[in-house]
């Protein structure tokens, strides 16, 4: 059975052999390990050097510091407000409306295909 698993599998556009993949994995692992060896030797986990440095200011309360993930793309939503409003109006949360969109797209496609 193990000989059968080691056969070369030829598709039309390439081939698959497990030994090639194992060799490639080992080579990539060695390269990553060498790159890892260039890293900072003085790094120590769990000490003060791993904590975030807030430019020396006093730390606020966690509630006040909280940045919502939607604030990250505030400019994007502001610039595309005209289309996002339309999208919000589309998403009613009602299954019938989603099925209606499906039926509308299917009808348009059928009109295209059928009347060409």
């Amino acid at each position: 059975m193990i000989e059968m698993m080691l056969e070369t599998f030829e598709t039309g556009t390439g081939y698959w052999h497990p030994l090639v993949w194992v060799t490639a994995f080992v080579i990539i692992f060695l390269i990553v390990y060498i790159i890892r060896g260039f890293g900072e030797k003085k790094y120590k986990k769990g000490t003060g050097q791993t904590q975030a440095f807030l430019s020396g200011n006093k730390e606020y309360d966690k509630q006040l510091m909280h940045v919502q993930s939607s604030n990250l793309y505030w400019g994007w939503t502001e610039a595309l407000k005209w289309i996002i409003d339309v999208l919000k109006k589309m998403h009613t949360g009602n299954v019938s409306d989603y099925v209606l969109w499906f039926v509308v797209v299917m009808g348009i496609l059928l009109l295209f295909v059928g009347l060409m």
Binding site: L100, V104, L110
Partner: peptide, 12 residues
């Protein structure tokens, strides 16, 4: 809108 497009799909 729903009736119109459902009619189109039904006819096809």
């Amino acid at each position: 809108l729903a009736a119109a497009f459902l009619t189109i799909v039904a006819v096809f």
